[in-house]
Design a protein around this nucleic acid. Sequence first.
DNA 1: TAGATTGTTAATCGATTAACAATC
DNA 2: TAGATTGTTAATCGATTAACAATC
Lengths: 229, 229
Amino acid sequence: MTEKRQTSTKTLAKPTLARLAQYHQISIRAGEDGREYISSAHLANLLEVDETLVRKDMASAGILGKPRVGYATGDILDALDRLLGFREQANAILIGCGSLGTALLRYPGFAKYGLRVTAAFDNDHAKVGHRVGEFMILPMEKCRSVIDTFRVEIAILTVRADAAQSMTDWLVQRGIKAFWNFAPVKLRVPPNIIVRDENLALGLAQLIHHYRRATPVSPELPLVPLEEV
Amino acid sequence: MTEKRQTSTKTLAKPTLARLAQYHQISIRAGEDGREYISSAHLANLLEVDETLVRKDMASAGILGKPRVGYATGDILDALDRLLGFREQANAILIGCGSLGTALLRYPGFAKYGLRVTAAFDNDHAKVGHRVGEFMILPMEKCRSVIDTFRVEIAILTVRADAAQSMTDWLVQRGIKAFWNFAPVKLRVPPNIIVRDENLALGLAQLIHHYRRATPVSPELPLVPLEEV
DNA sequence: TAGATTGTTAATCGATTAACAATC
DNA sequence: TAGATTGTTAATCGATTAACAATC
């Protein structure tokens, strides 16, 4: 009966959730490396936050540490797998088998979060029928029946920017509840529909800004052809 | 002389910078669609923030709006290109030509931010010599001289998680100042070295959590083979 | 025990929002 | 002019940090 403690039903603050996902990832790696305990100071150092904050996060996830030792990586994974919902399986489809979509199809790491990619689709009939990793690219015409048959509620969206919004509308109508969106546009969705934007260009923009702030612009650029290097 | 107004030298708060990058992207698209003005209300709606915040952001970037009309997309792009540092060219190398690295090499959008990918490298000699988009994959042995010749200070890191830290250390020693890191690990770097983590797994973890919070777990899963759908 | 670490409450800080003035 | 929108200062809110107690 002890296993059913509810760890508070209050919704996690966004930055807290982001840190918990990091603790989870770090704990997986630590476990693989055979490290059984991690201190709040160590985690704080990695995330560049105050160690008090780490302890507060742990408390909010119901994870208890041992004074003089730290937090058990197994405890962290257990609590976070449960709290974040990685124990249940969910089916996803991937839409848009361009180079990024293809790369994601080859990535084996989704299973850690309970995500099972069921099928991959593309509008381009030239791509249909080709294999990518363990998937056969299906035509969009099959999408509806795959969603229904496998009760798919999650879509990984790797279509071009100009197609993303209309594709999203279409998928919402067909019952998709959550989008992992790689198109560099803000999607407009009804309330209750969840969108996570993985807008890589925004990340690059921010990196470039920090780089420019920190580093003087180098004067001239050499014109040596790459072959001669 | 008017063009040299300094727009305040104060460093931008992190969330502000993230929003400015979004305004930039939205303005590019609006410009392409022939929309000349955007109101703070429109931007606020897209980003799901208060419109006052948008106006404060614009002020902090030195962008002036017109009452009754909004902000000119051209003004936004001009100011942000300058403020964020997209006008200067910078050379980058890409390390790790797996599926994700390959996908990035095919992406033409870096130029918008002044980034020019100079060369792509891989440790795996089986990959060396193959073309990816307009790039020929080079062996790591060539990396040092490319960095020196082209004065490269930015690295796009798409190596496996277990290789990321040592590769980073090596690149830092050779003069790389900024990392766009796609490996799912927190990199440890000296101060002054800039890292932007594009940790896709963390994004997925957060999406799954929100999805689980919002959606009841569906009971059974059908076992129809995909071929029959 | 002393010391290292976790746990928790109170104080601070910074980002967002509210209120309202200014402008075309 | 009236109305719509920008611009700015003050108030609020929430997240982080500081201080210190508890524990092994």
